[in-house]
Simulated assay, not measured.
Amino acid sequence: MKDLLPDLCDNYAQDIRFLPLTLFNYGHNAPFWGQIVTLRCFEDNSLVRNILSTAGDGKVLFIDGHGSCRRALLGDQLALLAVRNNWQGIIVNGAIRDVATLAQLPLGIKALAACPIKTDKRQMGEKNVVLNIAETLVYPNDYIYADLNGVILSSTALDFSVLKTES
């Protein structure tokens, strides 16, 4: 099912929050979904590496880079680490790089933009905090669903068995 979000929104209108942020698709997998791990960091992806080095167990990392597109918070090496550790996807409120390689990886990736410049490494950031993105709260351990239509959030896992199968 490529158009997952329209059906989820139709069936779970009272249970979802729409993220009104224009994100571009950079990964091979769309749609993608999973439980959220949050990270807030600014132009420093040290903690991104730390998190993606752990077992993802089908989760989605949501990185709040404060919307900065001056440094890339995700590149090919970190994305490969995510694939090896069973992460389903990564959403970046900021920039990514190595876009041609990312498009080939079995991973969902959304970001604001691409930037070829790497980040500083200062080991700064906050993991598993509530994020406020485009006036929408993103909670750790909630669920996120993403496809070419956008991103929605839910406090509980949504049941796909109620969806149409012809989408």
Score class of each variant (00 low, 15 high):
residue 91 I to V: 15
residue 139 Y to I: 11
residue 66 H to F: 12
residue 91 I to N: 03
residue 72 A to P: 01
residue 88 Q to W: 08
residue 1 M to N: 11
residue 49 R to N: 11
residue 69 C to D: 02
residue 35 Q to H: 09
residue 65 G to D: 03
residue 108 G to R: 08
residue 60 V to S: 07
residue 51 I to D: 06
residue 120 D to Y: 11
residue 15 D to M: 14
residue 60 V to K: 08
residue 7 D to N: 12
residue 20 P to I: 00
residue 46 S to F: 03
residue 112 L to H: 01
residue 12 Y to M: 08
residue 44 D to R: 01
residue 86 N to Q: 15
residue 59 K to N: 13
residue 138 V to W: 04
residue 85 N to Q: 15
residue 50 N to Y: 13
residue 24 F to C: 06
residue 1 M to W: 07
residue 56 G to C: 04
residue 137 L to T: 14
residue 152 I to R: 03
residue 40 R to Y: 12
residue 163 L to E: 03
residue 156 T to M: 12
residue 122 R to F: 11
residue 114 A to R: 01
residue 124 M to V: 14
residue 109 I to L: 02
residue 21 L to T: 10
residue 44 D to T: 01
residue 116 P to N: 05
residue 86 N to V: 07
residue 2 K to Q: 14
residue 5 L to A: 04
residue 18 F to K: 15
residue 65 G to Q: 03
residue 144 I to M: 08
residue 143 Y to N: 12
residue 111 A to K: 00
residue 38 T to P: 09
residue 94 G to A: 02
residue 151 V to S: 08
residue 65 G to H: 08
residue 21 L to S: 05
residue 142 D to Y: 13
residue 88 Q to P: 08
residue 10 D to S: 10
residue 163 L to F: 03
residue 149 N to C: 01
residue 86 N to C: 10
residue 133 I to C: 07
residue 136 T to G: 07
residue 96 I to M: 06
residue 82 A to G: 14
residue 167 S to T: 14
residue 13 A to T: 06
residue 41 C to L: 02
residue 36 I to P: 12
residue 79 A to N: 08
residue 48 V to Y: 04
residue 23 L to C: 02
residue 122 R to Q: 11
residue 46 S to Q: 06
residue 111 A to Y: 02
residue 104 Q to W: 00
residue 23 L to N: 02
residue 148 L to C: 04
residue 43 E to V: 00
residue 75 G to M: 03
residue 133 I to D: 09
residue 90 I to Y: 09
residue 35 Q to C: 12
residue 67 G to N: 01
residue 122 R to E: 13
residue 75 G to Y: 04
residue 121 K to S: 14
residue 56 G to K: 07
residue 4 L to T: 02
residue 91 I to H: 07
residue 62 F to Y: 14
residue 75 G to F: 07
residue 5 L to F: 02
residue 25 N to I: 13
residue 70 R to D: 13
residue 54 T to E: 11
residue 105 L to R: 05
residue 43 E to A: 11
residue 3 D to V: 00
residue 88 Q to M: 13
residue 133 I to K: 06
residue 80 L to K: 15
residue 156 T to G: 10
residue 88 Q to R: 12
residue 38 T to Y: 07
residue 83 V to R: 02
residue 129 V to P: 02
residue 101 T to D: 06
residue 93 N to C: 02
residue 131 L to K: 09
residue 157 A to P: 07
residue 122 R to S: 11
residue 61 L to M: 06
residue 52 L to R: 06
residue 52 L to K: 04
residue 19 L to N: 09
residue 104 Q to N: 10
residue 61 L to D: 07
residue 137 L to R: 15
residue 74 L to D: 10
residue 11 N to A: 12
residue 90 I to A: 06
residue 64 D to H: 03
residue 33 W to N: 13
residue 94 G to F: 04
residue 101 T to W: 00
residue 142 D to T: 14
residue 24 F to R: 13
residue 127 K to D: 04
residue 64 D to A: 03
residue 110 K to E: 11
residue 75 G to Q: 05
residue 82 A to F: 05
residue 68 S to G: 03
residue 47 L to F: 05
residue 31 P to C: 09
residue 71 R to V: 01
residue 122 R to W: 07
residue 119 T to P: 02
residue 53 S to K: 05
residue 158 L to C: 09
residue 84 R to Y: 09
residue 82 A to W: 05
residue 67 G to A: 02
residue 165 T to C: 06
residue 106 P to V: 03
residue 29 N to T: 15
